[in-house]
Design a protein around this nucleic acid. Structure first.
Length: 310
DNA sequence: AAATCGAACAACCGCCACATG
DNA sequence: GCATGTGGCGGTTGTTCGATT
C-alpha cells in the first residue's frame, strides 16, 4: 500500500455524495485515460472531483471502465451466474471475475433483484437446497455442482498481452511490462495477483469480452471472445474502448453474447502467447474450502469441457 | 393525468486486510 | 507492535423509471 499523505487531513473539502453527474464522469474518464495513476484519493483530487477516492474507484470500476459490458445478461450468463453462485456463494467478486465485462456489483444486483426470486419461484415446489443465500459452497461430491463450470472458471491464464512502449493501456492490470495498476502503485500487483483479483472479467479487451475458450476449456454455444489480433490492433481496441466508455452512457444496448458471428473464437494460450501453461500462483481464498483441490479433481472430470445451456 | 408500486440499478457503508511510517 | 491510509469486498440503502391502477 501507499504511505499516507500527510496533507490528506489538512485541506478537507466537502465531498460530494450521491449520483454522479455527466460532468463528473467526464472528468474521471478523461483523467483515468490520460494520467490515471496514483492512489484513488490523488485521482479524485487531481481530476478535480469533489469525491472521495473510494467513490471514484467504485464509479470507475462499476460504470466507467472501458472494458465493461453493458446491457442485459444473456441466458448463458444467467446460467453461469447460477452455477457459480451454487459453488462460490455470495463471493460476487469471484463470480464477476469469471464473467468478462461484468462487475461484482452488477452481478450482485442482478442476483438479488432477479435470479434470487426466479430461483425461489422455481424451487418453491421442489424445495431445492440450491436456493439459498448461503455462503457455503455446495457439496461437489453430491453431484450438484457443475464441475465443468468450475473448470471454466479456474483454468489458468499465464501471461497478458504485451504492449509496446508508450502505448496507453486502459487495462494496466494486464500489462506485465509496465506493471502498474490503476491505483498507481508500480509493481504493486503482479499478474497472478491481478488475475486473482480481477480475474478473467477484467482480463479481456474489447467491449464485449465474451467468454473465453481455451484449448482445454470451452463452451458449446455462442461463447467466444474477439481475437486481439484478428480484426483490430490493441491500439484500435483501446481507442474503441475509450470511445465506448464515453458513449455507453448514452446507449447501453450492447448485444454481446447474442451473436457469435461477430466474434472469433480464441484460445487463451494463443491470446497470451503461451500454451499448456498452468498458472498456480493464485492466493486463493477459495482454498479456504479446498477449491484448489477441487480443481485438481476437475481436470480429470470427463465432461468438464462442455458447457451446455439447457 | 396522477398516484402507486415494484424492479432494476447506482452508490454508500462498514468491515477487513494490507502496507507503511 | 501500533496507528494510519488505502483498496477490496459484501451488504444495504437510495434513486430512477416503467408498468399498473
Amino acid at each position: 500500500m501507499r504511505k499516507p499523505d500527510p496533507n490528506m487531513t489538512k485541506d478537507k473539502i466537502k465531498l460530494r455524495k450521491g449520483l454522479w453527474s455527466p460532468e463528473e464522469d467526464e472528468k474521471l474518464i478523461k483523467y483515468m485515460l490520460t494520467s490515471g495513476q496514483g492512489c484513488w484519493t490523488d485521482i479524485a483530487k487531481n481530476a478535480g472531483l469533489q469525491r472521495c477516492g473510494k467513490s471514484c474507484r467504485l464509479r470507475w470500476i462499476n460504470y466507467l471502465r472501458p472494458d465493461l459490458k453493458r446491457g442485459a445478461f444473456s441466458p448463458q450468463e444467467e446460467d453461469l451466474i447460477i452455477h457459480l453462485h451454487s459453488i462460490l456463494g455470495n463471493r460476487w467478486s469471484q463470480i464477476a471475475a469469471r464473467l468478462p465485462g461484468r462487475t461484482d456489483n452488477e452481478i450482485k444486483n442482478f442476483w438479488n433483484s432477479t435470479l434470487k426470486k426466479r430461483l425461489k419461484n422455481n424451487t418453491s415446489t421442489s424445495s431445492s437446497p440450491n436456493d439459498s443465500d448461503s455462503l457455503e459452497p455446495r457439496d461437489v461430491e453430491g453431484g450438484i455442482v457443475p464441475l465443468h463450470t468450475m473448470a471454466f472458471c479456474l483454468d489458468s491464464i499465464s501471461s497478458p498481452p504485451m504492449l509496446t512502449n508508450n502505448q496507453f493501456d486502459p487495462f494496466p492490470l494486464l500489462n506485465i511490462n509496465n506493471r502498474y495498476d490503476v491505483m498507481g502503485a508500480p509493481g504493486l500487483l503482479d499478474v497472478p495477483t491481478c488475475l486473482a483479483q480481477g480475474g478473467l472479467g477484467e482480463a479481456f479487451y474489447g467491449d464485449c469480452g465474451n467468454i473465453l475458450e481455451t484449448g482445454k476449456i470451452g463452451f458449446e454455444g455462442d461463447f467466444s471472445i474477439p481475437s486481439l489480433e484478428s480484426t483490430t490492433s490493441i491500439e484500435d481496441n483501446n481507442a474503441a474502448a475509450i470511445n465506448n466508455s464515453i458513449d455507453h452512457r448514452k446507449s447501453n444496448n450492447n448485444t454481446c453474447f447474442n451473436s457469435s458471428s461477430d466474434h472469433q473464437s480464441i484460445k487463451v494460450g494463443d491470446m497470451f502467447g503461451l500454451e499448456n501453461h498452468h498458472w498456480g500462483g493464485e492466493n486463493l481464498k477459495m482454498g479456504e474450502w479446498g477449491l484448489e483441490g477441487l480443481m485438481d479433481n476437475i481436470s480429470s472430470f470427463p465432461n468438464f469441457l462442455d458447457f451446455q445451456v439447457e
